[in-house]
């Protein structure tokens, strides 16, 4: 039987305090992430409907990692 480490407990507390409502799923996010990335690259403020994407990225480590990878890829193509 394992117990949570000190680090894991602090990670858990971090997850608890940063929790915000999230209205969309990972698939919803995936469907709009390209558009959101183009907004970011163009340094435009996203519209209200795009802000739900930002909120999801703040809550979902998997989608956030993929979004960062996408930005890196798109920056490379712009170079």
């Amino acid at each position: 039987m394992t117990v949570l480490s000190v680090e894991q407990i602090h990670t858990l507390m971090g997850l608890v305090v940063t929790t915000e409502p999230d209205q969309i799923t990972c698939d919803d996010c995936f469907g709009q992430i390209g558009e959101f990335a183009e907004y970011t690259l163009a340094k435009h403020d996203p519209s209200e409907s795009m802000r739900v994407i930002r909120r999801h990225l703040e809550q979902c480590p998997c989608c956030k990692a993929e979004y960062r990878g996408l930005l890196d890829a798109l920056y490379e193509l712009q170079a």
């Binding site: 995936f30 992430i33 390209g34 558009e35 990335a37 993929e66 990878g69 996408l70 890829a73 193509l77």
Partner: peptide
């Protein structure tokens, strides 16, 4: 057509890669 075609294609590539 929400984004450029190459952006859309890259979202699929990056998700596949990761």
């Amino acid at each position: 057509g929400r984004s450029k075609f190459t952006t859309w294609a890259m979202t699929i590539a990056v998700r596949t890669a990761i």
